[in-house]
């Protein structure tokens, strides 16, 4: 972990009554640095937080916005919860899968995009929608989705 990340994590400690409270934001910081949090990084975090490595691993694998293996440069997540599905999210996802040539959960061979699906992202009024690198892209159809995805570097 870079000195800068470490510094940011140490600054976080003061915001929480207990050190371990800062674990989630700390994982975000490590992930921002490396793109994922592997087992070495988890051990480093455990030492820093004075936790057992299994405790960090449990948190890390519980949340699906944390990655333990390398990811694509961009994350494209399509919401497939009920309202989005009623508005065509499933076929949208299928269309994106064939456009990118990967299945949901996989990364394109060039390492550009990791495709996934999410349960409700809380944007039912603008269904169907997807989240691209944390940004919402709403009121989608396949043409628009392809345009956004093709625009990613």
């Amino acid at each position: 972990m870079q000195a800068q990340t470490l510094q940011k994590i140490e600054a976080l400690f003061e915001k929480y009554p207990q050190k371990r409270g800062a674990l989630l934001p700390a994982i975000y910081l490590v992930q921002a640095e490396k793109g994922h949090v592997d087992s070495d990084a988890a051990r480093e975090l455990a030492e820093l937080f004075e936790l057992q490595p299994v405790d960090v691993w449990e948190v890390l694998t519980f949340y699906n916005m944390f990655y333990t293996a390398p990811q694509g440069r961009h994350h494209v997540y399509v919401c497939t919860n009920l309202p989005c599905s009623l508005r065509g999210a499933r076929s949208l996802l299928k269309g994106i899968e064939s456009h990118l040539g990967v299945h949901c959960g996989q990364t394109t061979a060039d390492g550009r995009i990791t495709l996934g699906h999410e349960e409700c992202l809380g944007s039912c009024g603008t269904a169907p929608m997807m989240r691209v690198d944390g940004e919402y892209v709403e009121n989608l159809d396949l043409v628009e989705a392809k345009r956004v995805i093709d625009g990613l570097d």
Binding site: R43, Q52, P53, V54, W57, E58, T61, F62, Y63
Partner: peptide, 19 residues
């Protein structure tokens, strides 16, 4: 000894030995 934990969540949860 802290050997075990639960990996992932929901139906995919499984017992693991940390990493």
């Amino acid at each position: 000894q802290f050997v075990f934990s639960i990996e992932s969540r929901g139906i995919q949860s499984s017992l693991c030995y940390g990493d």
